[in-house]
Amino acid sequence: MDGISTKPSVNGLARGLVDGFAADAVELRARVYEGPLGCRLVDAGATVRGGIEAGRRLAEICMGGLGQVAIVPSVTTPRWPTAIRVGAADPVIACLGSQYAGWSLSDGDWFALGSGPARAIYAKEHIYEDIGYSDRADTAALVLETAAPPPEAVVRTVAESTGVAPTALTFLYAPTQSLAGSTQVVARVLEVALHKVHALGFPMGRVVDGVGVAPLAPPSPDFVTAMGRTNDAIIYGGFVHLFVEGPDDEARDLAHKLPSSGSRDYGSPFAQVFSRFGGDFYAIDSMLFSPAAVVVSSLESGMSHRAGAIAEGLLDASFG
């Protein structure tokens, strides 16, 4: 692809973050150990306590070193006053080229979606053609939302698919039910917005910058409840501000189509929606996966367009 060499290497940028996480494992209440084929495994919340700071740093690794993730006070959800703020130096590459959980990996009963910079070396998802990006590196990291480490067959698949030696691979993992897992999932608020922008057919090259905020979802020991809360934090509590190029009317149209309230399945806590569809994630309207409220600012006209609203009552129903 033209121009790829001029774009940042998400694996190169993330390497220091990954090594720093491993070095700080004791303070982060994480565990680092050798896995199959000599890969490095980092447990951030499965058999260890982990925590919010571990999740915040996992999120920055997911964004390939291009993202800034901070724990901040929430001004939109006073009953849930702790929020996660996400920004990125290059939001399209950070969020869609790295953070998006798009690499499906499985072996027997083990399954997880891989997110993070190693995806960009594999780059077999169609979205990489659309954003014009891929990466090359001799080390790579993959973040997995799971309670179990990847088995040998999965490590081998990732190594062969990326051309990175197993001993140069790091897998970081934490279940959704953990504090770290919940934090890193909610930190996808900007990524979720950009994924919907892509689904709506808006040219990704015209997305210049963006910031997202969502309330920190309290975890639950029950997987469906925990998964529902992380989704609700974005669907009913997330706010995203995008800065785009192009005609003002197209920025206005994007703003009106972007919020989650435009989905047929909007209006119930996500765990209830999930149960209504018999646990079939893919039967749920994909337009539901979007922030509750947005502002889209046109750099061409200088005008900003607002749509959607925070639904704090639905957050209360979800968060407990």
Rank of each mutant, 00 (worst) to 15 (best):
V207I: 14
A214Q: 08
P215I: 05
H195T: 13
V213E: 03
V189Q: 01
R188E: 09
T176M: 04
S182G: 06
P203Q: 13
Q177W: 09
V189R: 04
V208T: 14
D209V: 11
V213H: 05
E191M: 10
P203L: 12
A180W: 01
Q177D: 06
A174P: 10
L179P: 06
V185T: 09
M204G: 10
V186I: 02
A180T: 01
V213C: 07
G201A: 08
T183P: 00
V208R: 14
H195V: 13
Q184Y: 00
Q184C: 00
G181V: 10
V185F: 06
A199M: 14
T183E: 02
T170Q: 09
V192I: 11
A187F: 04
V197C: 07
L179C: 12
G210D: 02
T176L: 03
L200P: 12
K196R: 06
Q177F: 10
L194N: 11
G205W: 13
S182V: 02
L179D: 12
R188M: 13
E191D: 11
V213I: 04
V189P: 02
V186D: 01
A199H: 14
G210S: 10
P215D: 01
T176Y: 06
F202W: 15
V207F: 13
S178E: 05
L200E: 10
V213W: 09
A214I: 07
Y173K: 07
A214D: 07
Q184A: 00
P203A: 10
L200H: 08
L194F: 09
V208M: 15
A180R: 02
G201N: 08
G212Y: 03
L172N: 01
V208L: 14
L190G: 12
P175A: 05
Q184M: 00
R206F: 15
L172T: 01
V186M: 03
T170M: 07
T183C: 00
G212F: 02
F171L: 03
T176I: 02
H195N: 13
G201D: 09
G201W: 08
H198V: 15
F202S: 11
L216F: 04
A199P: 14
Q184R: 00
L194A: 12
V211Y: 14
P175I: 03
V186F: 01
V211R: 14
E191K: 07
V197L: 11
D209A: 13
L172Y: 12
G201Y: 05
L194V: 10
V186Q: 02
A214L: 06
L190D: 13
H198Q: 13
Q177I: 12
R206V: 15
V211F: 15
Y173C: 09
V208H: 14
L179I: 08
T170I: 10
T176V: 04
A174W: 05
P215W: 03
L194C: 07
A187P: 05
A174G: 10
V185L: 07
V213Q: 05
V213K: 01
F202D: 11
A193Y: 08
Q177A: 12
D209Q: 14
G181M: 08
Q184I: 00
T176Q: 01
P215G: 03
H198T: 07
F171E: 06
E191N: 11
A187Q: 06
Y173A: 05
